[in-house]
Design a protein around this nucleic acid. Structure first.
Length: 114
DNA sequence: TCCGTGACACAAG
DNA sequence: CCTTGTGCCACGG
């Protein structure tokens, strides 16, 4: 497991129910603002138990290549948490989670390990 | 070590 | 609203 991917997964685990985060946001929060695509790569094979469905693209849409069934699954999981999806996208202004507090905590924890 | 490949982002047209 | 082009960088072969 690479450092970057591990960091992505730790962050994704902290996303609360009913909230979403974009790929670019995750990259930025991890200190690599231009590594959005790499976040996507990390999410391609994510560990079980991760709230992977709470990660969407910058337009509030569900980006998923190939497997259309997974896109449907993601939408259903989101709607089960109260996130309304209209015309294939959701309202980021309403559901976006910034995670500032949790990220600060993760960074402090990382510093403790140094 | 180098190179192609993306569950992306953003600006232009 | 779109579609395209470009930048980007972690990852794997």
């Amino acid at each position: 497991m690479n450092r970057f991917r591990g960091a992505v997964y730790r962050l994704v685990r902290t996303i609360p129910r009913g909230r979403v985060v974009t790929y670019g946001q995750i990259a930025a929060l991890l200190g690599a603002p231009r590594a959005a695509r790499a976040v996507g790569m990390a999410m391609r094979h994510c560990p079980a138990g991760l709230p992977w469905h709470r990660v969407v693209n910058a337009r509030g849409g569900i980006s998923l290549r190939g497997n259309v069934g997974s896109m449907l699954t993601q939408r259903i999981l989101l709607e089960q948490e109260g996130v309304r999806v209209r015309r294939g996208r959701l309202d980021l202004d309403r559901y976006r989670w910034t995670g500032a507090r949790e990220v600060r905590r993760l960074r402090l924890a990382a510093l403790d390990r140094l």
